[in-house]
Computed example of a mutant assay.
Amino acid sequence: MKIIIPMAGIGKRMRPHTLTIPKPLIPLAGKPIVERIINILIESLDREIDEIAFVIGDFSEEIQQRVADLGNKFNIKTSIYRQSSPLGTAHAVLAAEPSLKGEVIVAFADTLFFSQFNLKNIDADGIIWTCEVPNPKDYGVVKLDDDGCVTEFFEKPTNFISNKAIIGLYYFRNAEILKKSLFKLIENDQKVNGEYQLTDALQYMIENGYKIKAQNVDEWLDCGNKNATLIAHKRILERYPDESKVNESVKCKNAIIVPPCYIEEDVILENSIVGPFVSIGKDCIISHSIITNSIIQNNVKLSNVNIDNSMIGKYVDYNDSYDELNIGDYSEMNK
Rank of each mutant, 00 (worst) to 15 (best):
Q190K: 15
Q190I: 12
Q190G: 01
V192K: 14
V192A: 05
G194A: 00
Y196C: 01
Q197L: 14
Q197E: 07
T199S: 10
D200Q: 15
D200G: 11
D200V: 11
A201S: 15
A201Y: 08
A201N: 07
A201C: 10
L202A: 11
L202S: 10
Q203P: 04
I206W: 09
I206S: 03
N208W: 14
G209R: 10
K211I: 15
K211W: 07
K213E: 15
A214C: 08
A214L: 09
Q215V: 09
N216Y: 08
N216R: 14
N216L: 15
V217I: 12
D218F: 05
D218V: 08
D218K: 08
E219T: 01
L221V: 02
D222K: 09
G224D: 10
G224H: 13
N225A: 07
K226S: 03
K226D: 00
A228C: 12
T229L: 12
A232Q: 02
H233I: 01
K234Q: 07
K234P: 01
E238N: 04
Y240T: 00
Y240F: 13
E243S: 02
S244P: 00
S244N: 03
K245P: 03
V246N: 05
N247S: 15
E248Q: 14
S249C: 04
S249F: 04
C252G: 00
K253E: 08
N254C: 08
N254T: 06
N254Q: 10
A255M: 06
A255D: 08
I256Q: 08
I257A: 07
I257G: 03
V258Q: 15
P259R: 09
P259H: 07
P260H: 04
P260F: 00
Y262G: 01
I263L: 07
E265D: 13
D266L: 01
I268V: 09
L269T: 08
E270K: 09
E270P: 03
S272K: 03
S272G: 01
I273F: 03
I273Q: 02
I273K: 05
V274Y: 01
G275Y: 01
G275W: 02
P276Y: 02
P276A: 05
G281W: 06
K282D: 00
D283G: 02
D283W: 00
D283A: 02
C284N: 03
C284M: 01
I285D: 06
I285F: 05
S289L: 05
I290Q: 09
S294M: 13
Q297M: 15
Q297E: 15
Q297S: 13
N299K: 13
N299G: 02
V300Y: 05
K301R: 12
L302Q: 10
L302C: 08
S303D: 12
S303N: 14
V305Y: 08
N306D: 15
N306M: 09
N306G: 10
I307F: 12
I307P: 07
D308P: 05
M311T: 09
M311S: 09
G313Y: 10
K314C: 13
V316E: 02
N319S: 11
N319P: 01
D320V: 07
D320Y: 11
S321C: 14
D323P: 03
D323L: 07
D323A: 06
E324L: 14
E324R: 12
L325D: 06
L325S: 07
I327W: 12
Y330Q: 11
Y330S: 15
Y330H: 11
S331Q: 04
E332H: 12
M333L: 13
N334L: 10
